[in-house]
Design a protein around this nucleic acid. Structure first.
Lengths: 205, 205
DNA sequence: TAGATTGTTAATCGATTAACAATC
DNA sequence: TAGATTGTTAATCGATTAACAATC
């Protein structure tokens, strides 16, 4: 947890704040308050103020927070005031859906290259990307200086694909395969597993 | 947080334990230990033992945990020793990928019905499901007694779709749209937003 | 028996909340 | 000024970890 000593759990909430601010902005609001944000997200207003204070004083007493200003600040803090090129491995149904997903737009990420190991898929187009052979993962990623990758292959292939990505110099991985992955400690990893969320909810049903 | 007073954060880890156990089982192992699981998941062994102890004594001193037995117990605890029918709203690229996603199989969930509001899609088949009109959400879900739904529509439509689902009696919602949703407090909601995970990681890059 | 690992408590650590002065 | 909301501290609360006796 480098830069300073800010708790990782706080960092994890910032993207959620950022998403909420974007919604408020779309609704045409200019200003919000920790109370309003808390209501909207189901978080206490004290927590939101304290989280933000780790990074500076972004509000104004009596008024609240200027939405577009706070948004910009959070984007800088999270390093998404730039667009990151992302490599995607897996051009199946899930990979296709990821490429066409609108949720990346304007939030700091752009799929820049797609790989698959299926000869029938290599050379085909997805959106305006040509699917490359998985054999090219290392050379292409190194050459393009890509630092972030997504894994959207079947569970059985996820670990070997991950190993290749790590070799290629990838620093952060978003894994869509429903399996845990082993990576060197310098590499960050996040899992997207819908079943984890579903099972969490069925416990209470 | 009904049943007993077990912390929600503990419940949230159980699906991850369950997934790891499945992996160990696939590798041909019969027995594991809190230490081995902790290593694999990056969690302390003490935490794993303590989490499990909320629900009973599943291990054996000197030996560890029988994988298939612990798996069964967790499945019962999480209520996924049965298969839940799930309604999906949204038959676009993402909806298609969800229907064809292999990660639900054997983990307690089955897409039982798909809705869309696009006339061009209604009546079409995805896998062996026929896409129904979004107008039928309420009647069909009530009739089928479905309690869990997934939202895979554009952000702008997510709230109104959610309202319909709540009206239809849905109790748990998995939301794939990159937007927060307002629901009555009795309804549980989980978000799948890949950008949240990505932005969490870029902070450290 | 010796070795290993759980079950379990007590201690530590860290996160959340309550409260309010500062200030717009 | 009166009202509102932040910035900030102190108190509370809860989760994690360390440690070890129990026991397989």
């Amino acid at each position: 947890m480098p830069p300073t000593t800010i708790p990782d759990i706080v960092i994890g909430r910032l993207p959620v704040y950022l998403r909420a601010l974007t919604q408020f902005e779309i609704s045409g609001n200019k200003v919000t308050s920790s109370h309003e944000m808390g209501e909207h997200l189901g978080i206490s207003s004290a927590q939101i103020r304290k989280d933000l204070l780790h990074f500076g004083e972004f509000g104004k007493q009596g008024t609240g927070y200027n939405i577009s200003y706070l948004k910009e600040q959070l984007e800088v803090i999270l390093r998404v005031n730039q667009e990151w090129d992302v490599a995607l491995v897996g051009a199946g149904g899930l990979g296709n859906a990821i490429v066409n997903y609108s949720g990346f737009r304007g939030r700091g990420f752009r799929i820049a290259v797609v790989f698959d190991n299926n000869p029938a898929k290599i050379g085909q187009k997805i959106d305006d990307l040509i699917v490359l052979s998985a054999d090219q993962i290392k050379t292409k990623i190194s050459k393009m200086r890509i630092r972030i990758a997504m894994v959207a292959v079947p569970s059985g292939q996820a670990q070997s694909v991950t190993n290749k990505l790590v070799e290629a110099g990838i620093e952060s991985i978003l894994n869509y395969a429903p399996t845990s992955l082993t990576v060197p400690s310098k590499v960050r990893i996040h899992h997207i597993d819908p079943v984890v969320g579903l099972q969490h909810m069925t416990y209470y049903m």
